[in-house]
Amino acid sequence: MTIFTRILTGLLLLVSVAANAADDQAAQQLRKLLDAMNSLQGDFVQTTYDKTGVEQESSSGSFMLMRPGKFYWKTLDPMPQLLVSNNKTIWLYDPDLETVNIREFTEDLRETPALLLSADIEQLRKNFSIAKDAKDTSAEKYTLTPKVTEGMFQQLVLVFKAGQLTEFAIQDSLGQLTRCQLSNVQRNKPLPEENFFFVPPEGVEILHD
């Protein structure tokens, strides 16, 4: 899984009063959906496309998420990898390379899409313009656009069906699109705290950022 670590920098974009009103309404609707989602677990298929829409790579695995900032993302195919966050530390374990990359959970790491999903709605609204697609009647689709002039990605799209998060997609600054489809999703099931803490296996190389 790709981890976005570049810090969002630059000035906030100026928006009109009308745009702010629409943004607030969409943010409130998104708040209701996210507030009902304290934890989430299931399977994922993640596919990346270049700016012309040609598929570049695909991966699959399982995930667990608990707000705020607790996250477990296990890629099984094509290459095993594990990303774990307990809202204080992030571990990235690569069993093939026998390495564990450990870094502090800080604001600049909130660019990782799944960590955005586990963030507080007020934090999302502070950093993003939020719009709802009124034309799509089959699902509730929200587009989050960073309120900065520079950044690692241009848009994050969250898709809900019957109140359940089923997909998110992220478009980076180069036009590359990463789409993550969720399945077998269970919401608000108890998740043990130890799932969000990683103990490196004996003998692996430990790297610190």
Rank of each mutant, 00 (worst) to 15 (best):
M1I: 05
M1F: 04
T2F: 09
T2Q: 15
I3N: 09
T5A: 13
I7S: 09
T9M: 06
V15T: 13
V15A: 10
A18Q: 13
N20Y: 07
N20D: 10
D23A: 11
D23K: 09
Q25G: 00
A26H: 08
Q29W: 00
Q29H: 12
K32L: 11
A36W: 07
M37W: 04
N38W: 00
N38H: 11
S39G: 11
D43C: 01
F44N: 04
V45H: 06
G53E: 02
E55M: 14
S60V: 04
G61E: 02
M66K: 15
P68T: 10
G69C: 03
K74P: 00
T75A: 12
D77I: 08
D77A: 14
P78C: 05
M79Y: 15
M79N: 14
L83F: 14
S85Y: 02
N87E: 13
K88W: 04
K88V: 01
K88Y: 10
L92V: 12
L92C: 06
P95R: 08
D96N: 12
N101T: 15
I102V: 15
E104A: 15
T106Y: 02
L109F: 07
L109G: 00
T112K: 00
T112A: 14
P113S: 07
P113W: 06
A114C: 07
E122D: 15
L124M: 08
K126N: 14
K126P: 01
S129W: 07
I130L: 01
K132L: 14
K135N: 14
D136T: 13
D136S: 10
D136I: 08
S138P: 00
A139H: 10
A139E: 05
E140I: 04
K141L: 12
K141V: 15
T143F: 05
L144C: 06
T145H: 05
V148Q: 11
G151H: 02
M152I: 08
F153Q: 09
Q155K: 14
L158P: 00
V159N: 03
Q164R: 12
L165F: 02
A169W: 03
I170N: 00
Q171M: 06
T178E: 00
T178L: 06
Q181C: 02
L182R: 07
V185Y: 04
K189H: 06
P190T: 04
L191W: 10
P192Y: 01
P192Q: 06
E194M: 06
E194I: 06
N195D: 12
F197T: 08
F198I: 05
V199H: 09
V199W: 01
E205A: 09
I206K: 12
L207N: 13
L207W: 02
